[in-house]
Design a binder for these strands. Structure first.
Length: 92
DNA sequence: TATCTGACGATAG
DNA sequence: CCTATCGCCAGAT
């Protein structure tokens, strides 16, 4: 028995499942891959993820952008129709 | 095996 | 609303 799919790969898949305009938090992705509370670990994976992976659809729990990528991420999200206000995704 | 790191999260002040 | 601190997890060294 085998262990579950390697963490980075599982995260990779969860992020790829996100569709344009759809946004999720690191914590949400962590839960999706069966590792609740591993939000930081998810961030570490996205930090070195494949460039083809839509990493910009993953934001902080409070709707803020990834540290160091705020401009780039906000720009990409806006291009998909996401409402970004003052550097953070609009939380309803 | 031990320790440190980080694209996080929640709470306290 | 803001910053500061602690707690969390998986990977890297």
């Amino acid at each position: 028995m085998n262990r579950a799919v390697p963490f980075p790969e599982a995260v990779n898949r969860a992020v790829r499942a996100l569709r344009p305009g759809e946004v999720a938090s690191y914590g949400e992705i962590a839960e999706d891959v069966g590792a609740p509370g591993a939000a930081r670990a998810v961030g570490n994976v996205l930090a070195g993820c494949d460039p083809t992976l839509p990493w910009w659809r993953v934001v902080r729990a409070d709707g803020r952008m990834a540290v160091g990528k705020e401009e780039d991420q906000a720009r990409r999200l806006r291009a998909e129709g996401v409402d970004v206000r003052d550097g953070r995704v609009r939380i309803r």
